[in-house]
């Protein structure tokens, strides 16, 4: 069963996004196919050169870079959301695929779950 986990919450403001990441990692741990889709304010997770030391948190960009090692299938980002937050492909972290967050995309997964 393939699962798509949607993160539409901005990074650092709340714990819901990190919990979603944890859920995706747990699925991967048991070899269940899982992908992440960042959409809305969630695309800000994917910007390069974050440094959360000043607010006493771990940098989500670095946490996220462990996803391929753990076996997360894909890191997807909604194209329109990236545009509205000024994110070009060159300002995104490595390994992100731009997609359109629409019904056709969701139909590729058995289960879609939102963070928070």
């Amino acid at each position: 069963m393939s699962t798509l986990i949607m993160i539409d919450q901005p990074p650092y403001g709340a714990w819901t996004g990190r919990e979603a990441l944890d859920m995706a990692f747990s699925l991967a741990a048991f070899d269940q196919p899982a992908s992440l889709l960042f959409t809305g304010a969630g695309v800000n997770w994917l910007r390069q050169s974050q440094d959360a030391g000043g607010i006493g948190q771990k940098t989500v960009e670095k946490n996220l870079s462990a996803a391929p090692i753990f076996g997360i299938e894909a890191i997807l980002a909604d194209r329109a959301s990236c545009k509205s937050y000024g994110l070009e492909e060159s300002s995104l972290i490595d390994g992100v695929t731009l997609v359109n967050n629409d019904a056709a995309l969701l139909s590729e997964y058995d289960h879609t779950a939102f963070a928070g």
Binding site: D22, F25, S26, A28, A29, F30, K58, T59, K62, N63, S65, A66, I69, F70, G71
Partner: peptide, 18 residues
């Protein structure tokens, strides 16, 4: 791994995978 990802592998299975 910790230096690069700012986290420990979260579970035993993911430790083995990494």
């Amino acid at each position: 791994f910790y230096k690069e990802h700012e986290m420990s592998p979260p579970s035993n299975r993911l430790f083995v995978k990494a």
